[in-house]
Write a protein that binds this DNA or RNA. Structure first.
Lengths: 366, 366
DNA sequence: ATGAAAGCGCTAACAA
DNA sequence: TTGTTAGCGCTTTCAT
């Protein structure tokens, strides 16, 4: 029943109204408040719309008027292939996307990785037509945080950073979780431990991009709250067992490659050959480390204990001793906090549960 | 230098202009055309903006005026955890997101899975403030395709469906690729083959959600072009070798679980115990099938040949015989087609390369 | 280099 | 039930 070719100029609500000799309100109501007009009139409107190729009210114009964009923005500051290679990060996105779907909202991915200039990234954040932001795992000194705050929109921070005034936060107790894991390791008798972690600052002050033993100053004040707390948790447990902090070798990795854990463990063992346990702040690091160790004839857990963090499916399948958390749930909570915010209007801190899972990769030192 | 609390009412371009006693044009220029005013005036504007907490021009209002949203929409019709569990789909999203980042555009995820009513989903598509759409792997009879066409925005279809008037398409030659793989398998001497595939229609006419031998009518005209072509490719090769189509047992799987391939292979072997080769239309199915076979003491390739499709990292790492394609590149191309469309304005079909990789999972029948 | 005027397409009061 | 009136906040000719 279409009446020939599409009109030169796209139909608008106004043109439809003119065509039908009714007011614009009526057309608007036909779409937004079906109960405000007779079924008959409504049908007529919809039929005319079909004929004229009118796709319904323009989303942008509607957003301007209603002051609602119908989408939330997810700011990702890591290179995309980092996030999309880590099942934990992926679980988070899945959960967030699910909650958006449920709430009938869109999810706008705002990638502001290092490949992009800060100016460009700022423009992207400023240009995002969204009702709120989710900030995933940014560093404490992330340059885009200010920009987001400028926007003055509801914001939910996930994991880090700690202090974004006015923003709610979804996180876990990283320190306690890692301390519990470290207590397990120390309890097994390990006295020299390596900790493999993602990079501790936005910058990378080493020669190559390969993993490196963390410089002292970076250990003092990592710019990633999560890593800071997890390191703190390990040290807490070691101190409690009377171990000196020298007994811990921290190796940081810049890239998130499937092989990063392997490279890192190599660096760790070169720096401190007496290490008997490799703790990792992410399962992806631990799994890669295990592969590397096996390839080099070092048996786990016989000759080396390995622990992870996150509880991603592959880690659990392979029996990794790790700390589990629900990344998907994190995403869902973050979304929900945006979609129906607490009545009080006050920022909320939502701390999710974690659990130490003793797998087949931890045992007494050789 | 901030002057106390944020103003009751959010600052706008107009209020800034009033405050400074300049025209709105000037403020607009300060942001969009720095060369149109003196540096001095511009600084004054920016400073005042800072003081008043003005975050710059409102993205939605700007979009309305400029008729550009600064984002593209990705319509995902599968449940999210399906897409986010398949490395191939993930690679696609990564590539698309990369190209968006490059172009300074946002990427709006529009999830319209089966958990949502068609009405709801339609609303979501209609409400998306985007400049174009990417449709990923939808069925031929997807109900949202019409809605997207209604919007009249540039659209790129990935893989399927074939026929979306006016839309460009990025794909591979599924039939030829699968035929080449089947020729390899038949060439090894296999005469009874099972094909494990994702579901062939949007509906699921079987009793349970477990994988099932495909009903004849679903084989006649699958509603997913990709699956149709791949099945066709296998049959081409079999026919060429003088094999009857009865020699092929097709099993379709509804869910995309990590264990789906295992369940499917079980169904296949129950239905046709003489099968000596399991071909799969996705690596994730093949890998799961291999796990299942191994767990049941069936050796690959000694007792059973297994082949995949996609060439995801894990598959290559495990030596799966498979067809490789670059999912990431698919995403990039789709994005580019939207960001800088061909000058002609005509729809384009971009066919990417594939390659049969002979791994360690295919061999002569036992 | 700056300003005035005219909308972009829509919805929400309020009237009729 | 339908229409009238005002904008939402911005950019863009066109004048000055």
């Amino acid at each position: 029943m279409s009446r020939g070719p599409a009109p030169r100029r796209r139909a608008t609500l106004a043109s439809l109204a003119a065509e039908l000799n009714v007011s614009r309100t009526t057309i608007s109501n036909a779409y937004n408040r079906p109960d405000q007009l007779s079924t008959e009139l409504r049908e007529r409107v919809l039929a005319a719309a079909r004929d004229m190729g009118y796709p319904g009210p323009d989303p942008v114009a509607r957003s301007l008027r209603t002051r609602r964009a119908g989408a939330v923005g997810l700011m990702i500051t890591e290179p995309l292939n980092y996030s999309f290679n880590d099942p934990a990060a992926l679980g988070f996105v899945t959960g967030l996307a699910e909650s958006c779907e449920e709430a009938g909202q869109g999810l706008l991915l705002i990638a502001v990785g290092p490949s992009r200039s800060v100016e460009d990234g700022t423009a992207a954040v400023l240009a995002a037509g969204v009702d709120g932001f989710v900030v995933y795992s940014a560093s404490d000194d992330d340059p885009y945080l200010n920009v987001i705050q400028q926007r003055g929109l509801p914001t939910v921070v996930v994991d880090q950073p700690m202090d974004v005034p006015g923003a709610s936060r979804v996180c876990i107790d990283d320190r306690a979780a890692m301390r519990a894991m470290a207590e397990h390791v120390v309890g097994l008798g390990h006295r020299r431990i390596a900790l493999l972690t993602m990079r501790l600052g936005r910058d990378w002050p080493y020669e190559s991009t390969a993993p490196a033993v963390a410089k002292a100053d970076r250990l003092q004040s990592p710019h990633f709250h999560v890593q800071r707390e997890r390191i703190g948790g390990v040290l807490d447990a070691m101190r409690a067992a009377g171990l000196d902090s020298d007994a811990l070798t921290v190796v940081e990795s810049y890239e998130h490659l499937p092989s990063s854990g392997g490279s890192a463990v190599e660096v760790a063992l070169a720096a401190q050959p007496q290490v008997t346990a490799i703790m990792c702040t992410a399962d992806v690091l631990a799994l890669s480390a295990m592969d590397h160790l096996r390839a080099h004839g070092i048996y786990v857990p016989g000759q080396m204990t390995v622990t992870g963090f996150d509880g991603v499916p592959e880690a659990l399948a392979r029996g990794l001793t790790t700390v589990t958390q629900s990344s998907v749930e994190k995403g869902r909570r973050a979304g929900r906090l945006l979609h129906d915010p607490p009545r009080s209007g006050l920022p909320v801190v939502d701390v999710l549960a974690t659990e130490v899972v003793r797998g087949r990769t931890s045992g007494p030192p050789a």
